[in-house]
Design a protein around this nucleic acid. Structure first.
Length: 241
DNA sequence: GCGACAG
DNA sequence: ATCTTGTCGC
């Protein structure tokens, strides 16, 4: 079994869930929950999907203006899938594609949103936290379901939230982002605090359940990439959004 | 032991 | 995640 030292991703996984879990615990120690990033100029949203019956992992990334939330550019990366889906080990399966998508950007975002958990994970290393540690970028995890922990039902009004608790500590927030919609599970990925993370999700909502970074990445990802990819798609973005 | 289990 | 139309409720 080989391991990529910088990202903590297995080059070829030997199927050892035990080894993967202990590696997560080690990487989790590098996660910072301190707010230490400048006022963002550009944000990025990432989403992962699969093609060819799971043989190909597809990552979509959208770069957007932090003030207007308008998309600037988008890309889709495809890599061969190297691991099966195992609850709790999601990042090892999806990280390679996320890294490939990040490499396609023409500029680096100051804050990234990833579809999935940040520290709201059994060992505090959901995909947003793993991605944050692997890239060093400030990251927020926005998931549609709970993986670890429990929470009370948040109030019905957008903005209402309830703490997500696990083993005596708060690991995230169940946030009502839209009326009559199930709450989002928001947790810090890296270099951001619990409160600042929800604050950014609130600040990037545009009337939909998902915040713009994640919502736009979801959109181009579900188009199966027929239209999008590379800079050409970014220039032609009016036909996409 | 039983149930839960991001995407 | 993915296969997929209509349909119920705001």
């Amino acid at each position: 079994m080989t391991l990529h030292p910088q990202t903590g991703v297995f080059g070829d996984w030997d199927g050892s869930i035990i080894a993967a879990r202990s590696l997560q615990s080690e990487l989790a120690q590098r996660v910072s929950l301190r707010d230490d990033f400048p006022e963002p100029q550009v944000l990025a949203g990432f989403d992962v999907g699969f093609e060819e019956d799971g043989a190909v992992t597809r990552a979509a990334v959208v770069l957007l203006d932090a003030t207007t939330l308008q998309p600037i550019e988008s890309h889709i990366a495809r890599v061969a899938t190297s691991m099966p889906y195992v609850p709790g080990l999601l990042s090892f399966r999806e990280l390679p594609a996320l890294m490939a998508a990040l490499a396609m950007l023409t500029r680096t975002p100051e804050l990234v949103f990833v579809d999935g958990q940040g520290i709201a994970h059994p060992r505090r290393l959901g995909i947003a936290a793993h991605f944050g540690v692997a890239t060093g970028l400030p990251a927020i995890g926005v998931a549609k379901k709970v993986l670890a922990g429990r929470h009370d039902e948040p109030g019905p009004t957008p903005g209402d939230r309830a703490a997500l608790m696990h083993r005596g500590e708060q690991i995230g927030w169940a946030l009502r982002s839209k009326l009559r919609c199930n709450p989002l599970i928001v947790s810090p990925g890296h270099r951001i605090s619990l409160d600042t993370a929800v604050g950014w999700v609130m600040r990037t909502l545009k009337g939909y359940r998902l915040p713009e970074p994640t919502r736009l990445a979801d959109r181009i990802a579900s188009r199966r990439g027929e239209l999008a990819t590379s800079v050409a798609a970014a220039i032609d973005k009016d036909s996409l959004f």
